[in-house]
Amino acid sequence: MAVSTDRISVHSMADLKNTSDDAIPAYLNSLKFTQSHHLSDTRLALGYSAFAICAATFYWDYKLGFESTKHYTAVAVAIYAILNGILTFWIWGVEKGKVYIGTNKAGQRIEISSKTEKFTPIYNLSVTTVQKGGKSETVSIKKPFNAWFDKAGHFVALPFQQMLASGVKIVGEADPTKVVEAKKKEKKVEGPDKSMDEKWASLLAESSGVSLDDVVASPAATPSGRKKRAKKA
């Protein structure tokens, strides 16, 4: 299925990001990566234990009243606060926006985290590949969402998968047909035949320090163009 039948609103950053995030496990799992769920499972376990404590508190408070249960309630409130604290730490300090962790048959591990900035429709991926010996390498990929969402808001899988296959070596090895040569750049001609949308996209890309033609980004690229622009303004 090249184009998904579901439509999202192209003006909603949350929709753009969530749909793209969901496409990563779907693609990589289809390439025989084995997904590891331990991050989200831990988060769910923490959250549901906290919720269970709250439910118990609600029940005994409702059944037995405040006076006779207040010492248990105090303990429950403390445990709830601690669990919620650990949960917050887990989300901000450990998960850090990771949307996929998986290993392939050769034992290489891949960890992908995604990020977007408010009002900037650019998808920032940080992909860490850990070799079997423990040697790790991180590449970052930046691409505007309109590379794989059409105007109506349909997700188009091919360019998205090409981005991952070309940007990440072990994905490219698993799916060589999707690798697009990074250096095959044509100089685009700025002309009147360019549509308004294309101009818009290139303007946006330029202001965020990304080239539209650049499928593969350099490791840990810093958006220096952005800073300059900010200073001028």
Partner: peptide, 28 residues
């Protein structure tokens, strides 16, 4: 995707339970 469904349900549950536990904390 049961995990995602569980996560969404949990977000909703945590909003309610945090409000309730803050009230109970104040009570205590």
């Amino acid at each position: 995707n049961p995990r995602q469904a569980a996560a969404q349900l949990l977000n909703f549950g945590l909003i309610l339970s945090t409000a309730f536990m803050m009230w109970k904390g104040l009570s205590v």
